[in-house]
Amino acid sequence: MAGKGDYILKTEGLTKEFKGFTAVDSVDLTVRRHTIHALIGPNGAGKTTVFNLLTKFLTPTRGTIAFNGRDITRAKPAEIARLGVIRSFQISAVFPHMTALENVRVALQPRLGTTFHFWRPDSCLRVLDARAEELLDMVGLSSFAHDEVADLPYGRKRALEIATTLACEPELMLLDEPTQGMGREDVDRITRLIRQVAEGRTVLMVEHNLGVVSALCDRITVLQRGAVLTEGDYETVAADPRVKEAYMGKAA
């Protein structure tokens, strides 16, 4: 089964209609294992909707989704996560009233198998602290481990989100605009971080910052009005006149 080994994620004819409006229109997307794959396109192209379909936060109207050769079209969001597909969100997805360490630990907890144990003291979670600290260290947050997350700056929250995602040991990470709303310095840090964590994993990301896309991504799929406009590496896509047109409008 060479095909199964090559592609970690494959959609066929993926379609989502909202009351007569087709947000995603028969998208065939294949994500190769161990690559960083970007999903770009102008506002309203359906990028986030595709993400929500892939992670089952929305149910597709038509089409199929296969992860590692297994049909996951009808699976539930939490199931997908346990299979190893972990997503981030456009707005920072953290647990604001917990400390940074607790945030990461929540993602580590299922491996202890005690998540329903309401009779045990939470001190039994300390065995996870070492791994949680390691992950925080990796994203440069060691010094914030015991701070409540609501007080962290935005860029740090995004970094924490990545640490939390990594804690799940995902095979496929789906990052929804990881550098959105960030200053230059944070963008550089997150870009480096994504490259680092993509080692040995597969990343599918929605990203607006083309600088980040060109620096990171092996393959790019351009969406327009819910459909795939073109696909290829950065040079191919950047040279495609249709892509320029989609972003800038028709040149006069």
Partner: peptide
Amino acid sequence: RTVHSPFGQVLRAIRDNEPRAVSLGYDVDR
């Protein structure tokens, strides 16, 4: 004890950000 238990931690996470808890693999309804 429930509040300060492994279960309590998950419960706090769900209260804080339910979609995120789902995306980390928790069946929040249970």
